[in-house]
Write a protein that binds this DNA or RNA. Structure first.
Lengths: 108, 108
DNA sequence: TTGACTCACCAAGATTTTTTGATATGTTGT
DNA sequence: ACAACATATCAAAAAATCTTGGTGAGTCAA
């Protein structure tokens, strides 16, 4: 089934929203090197635990990270597929190359 | 000069924030076909002019669109370069392929 | 010059997102 | 069982974003 325009726009907004906050970008930056537990992240960013928990949830809801529970710890990891999807969605917004569309002279 | 980590994160947040709103995504979708004036956009989206003006400014500040004044009209157009930049920034967030990093057993 | 028109911008209000501090749940080691 | 720990979640406050209605600047045609 092909997605509707609206659902594509909604998903596009969601995934890019997840990427639109500096704290989340720093989290992702740390996670690029591989799985980390929340405690590693809080000490790396020197941020309150509940704050990171909030941001990790935004990333997880958008599908950008996955989590793995192990004992008392929860490990987060980046999800390749979501990044590939983000590239595709971005491509879907790019200007279409149209041969030679002349500029409008007047308008409306 | 190579950009600082902070400035890359800031720029990443800005460009993806611009792409994180459905109204702006719809605007971009219309602009994919080529330059349009604000009046075309307001009638296409059936939205208040001041509302679109706000969103167009967000897109313009992020560098995603350029504008061109002609008489009473202002034409907006997508900017290829910014989309290329967005792809690069997105790539800079992707998981790095690390040979075989074993999962942490314990933690902290 | 006047009036109609396109658009940017501003201020106020509405809505959404983020931060903070507190509490709850489950785990581990003693 | 108990204490220490890791994490999620909640409510309230703070901050940021978005919408709305209004105004003003510039352009054009009559």
């Amino acid at each position: 089934m092909t997605p509707t325009h609206a659902s594509v726009a909604t998903r596009t907004a969601e995934i890019f929203h997840a990427l639109s906050d500096e704290t989340r970008i720093e989290l992702i930056h740390i996670l690029r090197r591989g799985e980390k537990c929340v405690c590693d992240l809080t000490s790396a960013l020197d941020a309150a635990q509940s704050r990171l928990s909030f941001h990790l949830k935004v990333l997880k809801d958008a599908g950008l990270v996955t989590d793995r529970k192990q004992g008392r710890w929860v490990h987060y990891e980046l999800n390749d597929h979501a990044f590939a999807e983000a590239h595709r969605l971005l491509t879907g917004l790019e200007p279409q190359v149209v041969p030679h569309l002349k500029k409008a002279e007047g308008c409306c």
